[in-house]
C-alpha cells in the first residue's frame, strides 16, 4: 500500500513537470562539446552581424555626437577666451581714453590759464598804456588850460591896466577895481 502511494506521488510530481525521470542524464557540471562549439559559432556570427547592423552605426553616431559636443564646447571656450580678451582690451581702451581725457582736460586747463594770463597781461598793458595816454592828455590839457589862463590873465591884466590908466581914478576906486577883477577871475 505504502509503495503504491509513494509511486503514485512521484509519478504525479514528475508528470507535472512534463517528464518522467530520465536516468543517465549528464550532470550540471558537464561541458558538452557540441554546445561549446555552437556557442562559439553563435557568438562569432552574432558579433559580426551586430557589429555591422548595430554597434558600428551606433558608436559612429556617438562619436559624431561627442565630436560635435566637444567642438561646441571648444568653440564656447574659445568665444569665452575671446570675450575675456575683448573685455580686457575694452577696459584698457576705456582706461586709455580716461587718461587721455584727463590729460586733455589738464592741458586745456593749463592752456586756459596761460591764455587768461596772457589776456590779463595784455589787458593790464593796454590799461597801462591807456592810463599813460590819458595822463598825457590830462597833462597836455592842463598845460593848455594853464597857458590859456595865463594868456587870459595877461589879457585881463593888460585890460585892467589900460582901464586904470585911462580912468585915472583914486586908490579906493583902484581897490574897488581890483576887487571886481578878483570876483571876475573867481567866476567860472
Amino acid at each position: 500500500m505504502e509503495d503504491a502511494v509513494q509511486t503514485q506521488a512521484v509519478t504525479e510530481v514528475a508528470v507535472a513537470g512534463g517528464h518522467e525521470q530520465q536516468g543517465g542524464q549528464p550532470g550540471l557540471m558537464h561541458v558538452d562539446g557540441f554546445m561549446v562549439g555552437l556557442t562559439w559559432t553563435t557568438f562569432l556570427l552574432l558579433s559580426l552581424v551586430l557589429y555591422k547592423v548595430a554597434w558600428k552605426p551606433i558608436l559612429k553616431v556617438l562619436d559624431q555626437r561627442e565630436k560635435s559636443i566637444r567642438d561646441a564646447l571648444d568653440q564656447a571656450e574659445k568665444a569665452r577666451v575671446e570675450a575675456g580678451a575683448a573685455e580686457i582690451r575694452n577696459r584698457q581702451l576705456i582706461l586709455a581714453a580716461e587718461q587721455e581725457s584727463r590729460k586733455l582736460v589738464a592741458d586745456a586747463k593749463i592752456s586756459a590759464q596761460e591764455t587768461a594770463a596772457l589776456i590779463r597781461n595784455q589787458a593790464e598793458q593796454n590799461a597801462r598804456l591807456l592810463l599813460q595816454e590819458a595822463r598825457r592828455d590830462i597833462e597836455a590839457a592842463t598845460e593848455q588850460a594853464r597857458i590859456a589862463l595865463r594868456q587870459e590873465t595877461t589879457d585881463l591884466a593888460i585890460s585892467l591896466a589900460g582901464k586904470v590908466i585911462s580912468a585915472n581914478m583914486d586908490s579906493d576906486r583902484n581897490r574897488a577895481l581890483v576887487n571886481d577883477l578878483e570876483k571876475e577871475l573867481k567866476r567860472p
Binding site: V5, A9, V10, T11, G17, P26
Partner: peptide, 21 residues
C-alpha cells in the same frame, strides 16, 4: 511517506529542469 515521495519528485523535477534537454 507521501511528503517524502513528493519531495523526491520535486527534486527530480527541479534537476530535470535545471539540466539541458
Amino acid at each position: 511517506n507521501v511528503a517524502q515521495a513528493k519531495s523526491d519528485g520535486v527534486q527530480a523535477f527541479i534537476m530535470h529542469h535545471m539540466q539541458d534537454s
